[in-house]
Design a protein around this nucleic acid. Sequence first.
DNA 1: CTCCCATTTTTACGCGAGTAAAGTTTTGCG
DNA 2: CGCAAAACTTTACTCGCGTAAAAATGGGAG
Lengths: 348, 348
Amino acid sequence: MRKPKINTMEELSSAISVSRPTLSRYFQDPESVRSSTRTKIETALQRVDYVPNFFATRMNRKATGLIGVIIPYLNDLFYTSLLEAIERAAIAADYTVITQSSHGDAALEARAVEKLLSMNADGAIVAPLGASSDPAAIERLSANLPLVFVDSRPISMPDNADFVGTDNRQSIRLIVEYLCRTGPAPVFLRMPRLNSNSQEREAAYLREMERLGHEPAFVEAGGQQDSWDFEGFAYELLDRHFSHGTYTKATILCANDRLAIGAIRAANRHRLFRPDAREAPALRIAGHDDHPLSRYMTPPLTTVSQDAPAIANAAMRMLMQRVRADAPRDASAMEQTFEAALRLRDSA
Amino acid sequence: MRKPKINTMEELSSAISVSRPTLSRYFQDPESVRSSTRTKIETALQRVDYVPNFFATRMNRKATGLIGVIIPYLNDLFYTSLLEAIERAAIAADYTVITQSSHGDAALEARAVEKLLSMNADGAIVAPLGASSDPAAIERLSANLPLVFVDSRPISMPDNADFVGTDNRQSIRLIVEYLCRTGPAPVFLRMPRLNSNSQEREAAYLREMERLGHEPAFVEAGGQQDSWDFEGFAYELLDRHFSHGTYTKATILCANDRLAIGAIRAANRHRLFRPDAREAPALRIAGHDDHPLSRYMTPPLTTVSQDAPAIANAAMRMLMQRVRADAPRDASAMEQTFEAALRLRDSA
DNA sequence: CTCCCATTTTTACGCGAGTAAAGTTTTGCG
DNA sequence: CGCAAAACTTTACTCGCGTAAAAATGGGAG
């Protein structure tokens, strides 16, 4: 039942007696050949096993039709949501996406950059590691192809680099305002990893607290942490605090939902949430991002939503502009940030 | 500060006066050239911007050094864990992995297959969609390159297809046995999507219940569901049930942890878990997989662990055997399943 | 049945590098 | 210092297909 395997267009050509150039045109655009020969080719194609060689086809075109995507870490539903949306958009635009994960490692991120360069990608969408990124690698990528950053900015943002992300100032203002209005002012639980988001959110927190006349405060964390196990980090940190009786009646604003998930677990372990109590709970926990599982926590997490699909789509549109219309690379940088929306649930 | 861009080896060759064939050898294995010329090349390389064209390099080699990976869905931490481990192993083995997500759609899965074929990948690791997969596409891939399935088997498993996964019979036996020993026998909550795992787990459940002399039962679900939103599916189903007072004192064994996460939320919404009660809780919920966030649920989810990294590594080893030693493709199929371990936490 | 335009076929070259063969230079050793 | 082996340079062909130009073919309008 296996169809005879044909490896090259040349073979196909002689096998079905259609010239190779015509086949070439057919595979680039079936509409570009007369309908009679088209059906001739297509019926033949059903009887044999052939796919044009991807590498050979791309080598001679001006554009490769490839878009590189680099994300810092795979096991994070926020990044996979981004990826998912980017891939869908790319498929719609008839581009092939080459996904590379940095696995939280700057060396691998640099390696991913090299790979994209060697593949002559038409453009790239990068969610950088952040502080640990290799600036030279980023710069190199940016110098050689249109590049838009998503989620966070690299430490040393190349000139004229495009960016799409969330408006951290707005999102933090929203949640801080809400928390202050409905209870004690929040203490802030930082992200262990430093990237522009962590900095921006901290800054926004400070600014907003000041504006509202509250004393800002950060959850005490010993030593520099450098792990992508956000839930574990927050859980252990707060478990320790709660054991010592600290923060047990606080309002904790977590820099992202994954931290909040760990925090909620610690709180529940210490029975700090009282579902049956009439009065407002003593402890409140809020997050940031609206992680897909946040609504399934107990209590469901109050947070602000970061719209991953919107960010992904905007990034693709922006990249397409640079790639296609060839918005001059030296033109001014584009930037687009999305506002977040409050997701009021029960945790705060 | 930008280095002069060099596009081809030819240019590089004349620019640094080292012949092209020598450069070719250098890029394939720096050790294969005399150390003096190596340093000559390397110092030159620091002054200019050049990467060998990926496509051109692969075109003439017998092996492309590519490994294709197809996973059904990106927003699922189990699959991303698999991917993560596969990529790490591939990097170690000096292979480039091309990741393709089916996005839960058979047409996209087939498209991914075409892409891998067109790229002449040396091998592929595929976590199939399952029942909705296009058998022809799978067959086509299997016919053209070494292929090992992970996680679940395709409906129509090609002959001599390799497989790596979890021993569902063993894992289900483990959890059913435990549940029966410590309380009421479990009812089973099926996966909405049909793949070999769902079938095997159901069958294992039936078998084990029978062996232990209990009456098997399934959580009633109206109509065929076909969504990847497992948590939402389980949440809404059980929320409805709990509202009607059904299953409120049952022991529910979920076909996977994502379902369990939704189930736990529904249970908590109805105050079905009583953290303060002395006696054993009336409602018990157990899962399967040991999803990264299971331990952070409230109550923490009792489940059986599926070792994604182990599965991924085994799959890579198996594939490497086929690819490298060229374990004859027509030889007997290899199969490896991993045993699961009980993760006793508080939900059951 | 013409004539013309649209398609297709022929022919030939190019992309960027792998690779083989022959000739030349360098290196290591005695 | 002489020599063989190792490494390099030259030359030329290959991979699978894009693409351009010229010649040949086909189909439809008149």
